Computed example of a mutant assay.
Amino acid sequence: MRRTITGAALIMAGILLTGCGGDSGDGGKSEGKSASAAKPKKKWGPPETHKVTFEVKGTGSSQIGWAAGDNHFETADLPWKKTAQVTLQGAELKAGVQIYVTPQSVKGADGTFVFPSCAIEVDGKQVDENPGGESSQGCKYTLRGS
């Protein structure tokens, strides 16, 4: 009895495995092609390079965090300005890349600490600004392809 059950199980396993590789209904046209090869690949378009300018106004010295593809952190005398090239490619053209500048507070004329104003320009067009004061949010923008 045990041999009969084992033999039947092996035969069923063979039938099931053979059934998984059955005809796809396309007359054998897809034979030898993987499922991923059958789907067209997404074309995003050619890479795009953009000129990004960050600016922090005010007086004194501030620690500034900024990103234009890569993250940076530096201490600088104000006013401060930095220009970088950002190249978008592939999925970045649609999803975008986060760019930002975040200055830390500086001592104001009255002795209190305030956040300096900031701005971001992309290809000569201002895309974000923050007048500073009590807000520490800085400036940010998601750069996407055109």
Rank of each mutant, 00 (worst) to 15 (best):
V122T: 05
A68N: 03
D23E: 08
W66T: 14
L10R: 08
G69H: 03
V122D: 02
S136F: 01
T49S: 13
V52W: 05
V56F: 11
T87D: 01
A67V: 12
E134T: 13
M1T: 13
L78F: 00
T4F: 12
K107T: 13
C118L: 00
T59V: 14
Q137W: 14
E134P: 08
S30R: 04
S136K: 01
Q137Y: 12
W66C: 12
K43H: 12
Y100L: 09
A38D: 10
A37W: 10
P103V: 02
I5N: 09
A67Q: 15
F54R: 03
D77R: 14
P131L: 02
S61T: 15
T112G: 12
I11W: 02
E74H: 02
T4R: 11
G58E: 07
G7T: 14
V86G: 04
T4M: 09
S36M: 11
D123G: 02
D123F: 01
S34L: 10
S24P: 06
A13H: 04
A9G: 08
E48L: 13
Q126W: 04
W66M: 15
A119T: 05
T59Y: 14
A35P: 07
T102V: 09
L10T: 09
F115A: 00
E48Y: 11
G22P: 04
G28S: 02
G124P: 02
Q85H: 10
G21H: 05
A67G: 15
P46C: 05
C20D: 07
G132W: 01
I11Q: 03
G133S: 08
Q63V: 13
L17M: 15
P47M: 08
Q63A: 12
L93R: 07
K57F: 10
C20W: 15
C139P: 01
D26M: 03
A37V: 02
I15N: 09
I99K: 03
G65W: 14
G45T: 01
I120W: 03
K41F: 09
A76M: 08
D77W: 07
N71W: 15
I99N: 04
G25A: 00
K43I: 11
T6S: 01
G32H: 00
A35M: 07
T53E: 13
S34W: 09
V86Y: 01
A76V: 07
G108T: 05
K39Y: 06
L17A: 14
I99L: 04
Q89A: 11
S136R: 07
A8T: 14
A67L: 11
G96N: 01
I99F: 08
T53D: 06
D77H: 11
T102C: 00
T49R: 10
A9L: 06
T6L: 08
S61K: 15
V101H: 07
K125A: 07
C139R: 07
G7C: 13
E92L: 03
K42L: 11
R2D: 13
D128L: 03
G28K: 01
V106R: 00
A37N: 04
W66I: 13
S62C: 12
S36V: 12
E129Y: 09
K107Y: 06
G14R: 06
Q104P: 04
G60T: 06
D70E: 15
Q63N: 13
E31D: 06
C118W: 05
Q126E: 13
T18W: 14
V101N: 06
E121K: 14
L143C: 06
